[in-house]
């Protein structure tokens, strides 16, 4: 059978073109994403301190030093604080966004007048830069000129609200601003889920005598599982990547009260000349996100097939 080799030039070209067209993008992704990931992993095992890969003695080197960067990383109180801050922030951020998003979506789904306008208002923060959001909230929450000052000038002289300057509470202001920015998005995800539920099921449940409360608790919310899953995955990955907001809102302070892994990585890599440690913290961040995203993407792509 010599048949298969007889393809004419045009056909062979047409067979190769698709792969040819895909290859620049693929090459970019392989080099700039996966190659760079491997390189960062490599750097995390070396004694490099600053670019261009210079070590403590000022020599250009990328000498392997085993796990000592990771050991140092986990002995740093700065890193430990940023991990705890992340736990507090992520827990509250994901929890509040989910509840608020679901609540807004359910209420918006009650044939509300001006639903479109309300949705537009709830969602516009998503179009803003975190730097803008951070700036607005930074000054609004500032005790000197913001809410506290306003309340006092309105006559409530004992009013105090200095969370943003308070080591114990500053992290909650980050939660507040982040929730403000993304809860509308979560609302949209849940609203799409609600609109996707078959109305006949709801009618059947009502014929069965289900109250509104039971309708939501037993029929509707269980059917929103995919939306819950998406919301969780998106929110947790946003939480881990949170960087700009902290920079603009608190700069990581007061003290280290709002340091997160992303800000930790940035300052160790670029301002403290501890690139090896910075790289190892980036690897930890990547592994955390990968643990959440890979199973999710895998399931999504499998379903599509």
């Amino acid at each position: 059978m010599s048949a298969r080799t007889e393809a004419d030039f045009q056909t062979r070209l047409q067979n190769w073109l698709p792969k040819l067209v895909l290859s620049p993008s693929l090459a970019m992704v392989l080099i700039f994403v996966y190659g760079f990931i491997l390189f960062t992993v490599y750097v995390s095992f070396t004694d490099s301190r600053i670019l261009p890969f210079v070590n403590n003695d000022g020599q250009r080197t990328l000498e392997l030093i085993g796990f000592s960067n990771y050991e140092k990383l986990f002995s740093l109180s700065h890193w430990e604080i940023s991990l705890w801050n992340m736990a507090t922030f992520a827990g509250l951020y994901i929890g509040i966004c989910t509840c608020l998003g679901l609540g807004l979506a359910i209420f918006l789904d009650q044939k509300i007048r001006a639903e479109g306008a309300l949705r537009t208002i709830y969602l516009y923060p998503m179009a803003l830069s975190f730097i803008v959001t951070g700036t607005a909230w930074k000054w609004f929450l500032d005790p000197g000129i913001g809410l506290e000052n306003v309340m006092q000038s309105w006559g409530w002289t004992s009013f105090e609200f200095d969370w943003i300057k308070n080591r114990d509470y500053a992290i909650y202001t980050v939660v507040l601003a982040a929730v403000w920015q993304t809860s509308g998005f979560v609302m949209a995800m849940f609203l799409a889920g609600l609109r996707g539920i078959d109305n006949e099921i709801l009618k059947a449940a009502q014929m069965d005598g289900a109250s509104n409360w039971n309708l939501y608790r037993r029929i509707i919310i269980p059917q929103l599982r995919p939306a819950f899953l998406s919301a969780f995955v998106i929110l947790s990955h946003l939480a881990i990547k949170t960087f700009d907001l902290v920079i603009a809102l608190t700069g990581g302070g007061p003290g280290r009260a709002t340091e997160l892994p992303a800000t930790f990585m940035y300052s160790y890599t670029f301002s403290r000349n501890q690139m090896g440690i910075g790289a190892s913290s980036a690897v930890i961040m990547l592994m955390t996100i990968a643990a959440i995203m890979i199973p999710y993407l895998y399931a999504e792509l499998r379903e599509k097939k």
């Binding site: 059978m1 048949a3 298969r4 007889e6 393809a7 004419d8 045009q10």
Partner: peptide
Amino acid sequence: ITSGEIRIKDVVMNGVHPSK
């Protein structure tokens, strides 16, 4: 075509572009 031949007017079509 995995194996075998398809011919139109006695010309083997294996590998020939659809438009041809």
